[in-house]
C-alpha cells in the first residue's frame, strides 16, 4: 500500500466518522430541541469510549437524550433509578432460585440492568456509596463480578449518569474515584426562548416523532477505532500534560487561583480524557491530527469534575469551571502572544 493509498483510507475513515456523527446528531435533534453542546459531548464520549456524567436540574431532557441515543444507535438500553435503598445486587444482578422442568430448583444468574450497552444511571448521587461503587468495575474494566462469576460486558458500553445539582439533602456525592471514571461531565442548561416553542409543539401535540436507528453498535466500534488512530503530536501532548498539571496546586504551572482554591487536581486519567476527546474534536474539525486547540476545546468537560476545591475555595464561592478557565488562561496556546 502506497502512502497515497494509506492516506486515502484515513481520509475516508475520517469522512465516514463525520457523516455518522452528523446523522446521529440530526436524528437526535428530532427528539431533543437545542442542547447542541450537550449532544456533541455525549457523542464525543460515546465515540471516544468513555462515560458521561450529565448534571442539570430536572425537566431539561437528560433522560430523554440518553433514551433517544439508544434508539438512534440501536443499542441495548437500560435505566436504573438510583434511590437510597438501592442495593448493589439490584444493579449488578444476583443468583435467584428458579424451578426447573423436573420440579427441582436451581440457582440461576439473573443479570442486572448494568449489563447492557447504554446504561442510564438516573440521579446516581441518590444511592449509597456502596451501590455507587458497584458501578466502578463495570465502568473501568467493562465487566461485572458476582461471587465467582465474572461477566464481560458487551461493547459498546457506555454509562450515562445524571445528577441533580439542587436538592442535595439525602444525597451521597460521588466519590473521587468514581468521578474520575467519567470521561466528561456535561452541564445541561435551560433551553433558549426559541427552543421552548419547539419543545412545546413537539411534546404537547397528538403526534410524536419516531426515532429511527441510523447506526449500530458495530459501526460505533469502528468509529471508536478511527478515533484511536488519530495521531497526537508532541506539542499537543505537552499542552495536555501541562493543562492537567496546572490543576494541581503544587505544580509549577498552577495559577494563583488553583494554588489558593484547589486541594486536589486532576489525575493522569484527566490527560487521557483530554487526548481522547480531542481526537474526536479534531476529526469533527476536518483534521487528521490533534492540535493544541482541540485539547483546549474539550478541557472544560474533561477537567471540571476532576478538580476538588479546598475549603477556602468553597468559602470564596469558587467553582470548578472558574478553576479550569484560570488554567486555560494561564497556559496560552503554543505560538500565542509571541
Amino acid at each position: 500500500m502506497t502512502t497515497t493509498e494509506s492516506s486515502a483510507s484515513a481520509k475516508a475513515a475520517a469522512t465516514r466518522f463525520r457523516e455518522v456523527h452528523e446523522k446521529v446528531r440530526t436524528e437526535l435533534h428530532k427528539a431533543i430541541v437545542g442542547q447542541d453542546a450537550v449532544i456533541d459531548s455525549v457523542l464525543t464520549a460515546l465515540f471516544a469510549g468513555g462515560h458521561v456524567l450529565l448534571e442539570g436540574v430536572p425537566g431539561i431532557g437528560k433522560t430523554l437524550l440518553v433514551h433517544s441515543l439508544g434508539e438512534t444507535l440501536d443499542l441495548a438500553f437500560s435505566r436504573i433509578q438510583f434511590t437510597p435503598d438501592l442495593m448493589p445486587s439490584d444493579v449488578r444482578g444476583a443468583e435467584i432460585l428458579v424451578e426447573t422442568q423436573g420440579g427441582g430448583h436451581e440457582l440461576r444468574f439473573q443479570p442486572g440492568p448494568i449489563v447492557s450497552n447504554l446504561v442510564l444511571a438516573d440521579e446516581i448521587n441518590r444511592a449509597t456509596p456502596k451501590t455507587q461503587s458497584a458501578m466502578l468495575e463495570a465502568m473501568q474494566e467493562r465487566q461485572v463480578t458476582i461471587g465467582e462469576r465474572t461477566i464481560k460486558l458487551d461493547e459498546p458500553y457506555c454509562v450515562m449518569a445524571t445528577q441533580n445539582p439542587v436538592e442535595q439533602e439525602g444525597t451521597y456525592p460521588l466519590p473521587e474515584a468514581q468521578l474520575d471514571r467519567f470521561l466528561l461531565k456535561v452541564v445541561v442548561g435551560y433551553p433558549k426562548e426559541e427552543e421552548y416553542l419547539r419543545i412545546l409543539n413537539l411534546t404537547t401535540g397528538s403526534t410524536s416523532e419516531k426515532l429511527s436507528a441510523v447506526s449500530n453498535g458495530a459501526e460505533v466500534l469502528e468509529l471508536r477505532q478511527t478515533v484511536r488512530d488519530v495521531p497526537v503530536p508532541e506539542s499537543a501532548q505537552q499542552h495536555a500534560v501541562r493543562l492537567v498539571m496546572a490543576t494541581q496546586p503544587d505544580s509549577e504551572y498552577a495559577p494563583e487561583l488553583v494554588r489558593n482554591s484547589v486541594s486536589l487536581g486532576s489525575s493522569p486519567r484527566g490527560a487521557q480524557a483530554l487526548i481522547l476527546a480531542a481526537k474526536v474534536h479534531a476529526l469533527l474539525a476536518g483534521r487528521y491530527a490533534v492540535a493544541p486547540e482541540d485539547i483546549r476545546a474539550v478541557a472544560l468537560p474533561c477537567l471540571r469534575h476532576r478538580v476538588l476545591l479546598s475549603f477556602q475555595g468553597q468559602a470564596d464561592g469558587v467553582g470548578a469551571d472558574q478553576v479550569v478557565a484560570a488554567v486555560l488562561e494561564a497556559l496560552p496556546l503554543p505560538g500565542e502572544g509571541l
Binding site: T4, A10, P231
Partner: peptide
C-alpha cells in the same frame, strides 16, 4: 500511519 500521512498532505 495513514493519519500521519494525511496530516502531512493536509
Amino acid at each position: 500511519t495513514p493519519f500521519i500521512v494525511a496530516a502531512l498532505e493536509d
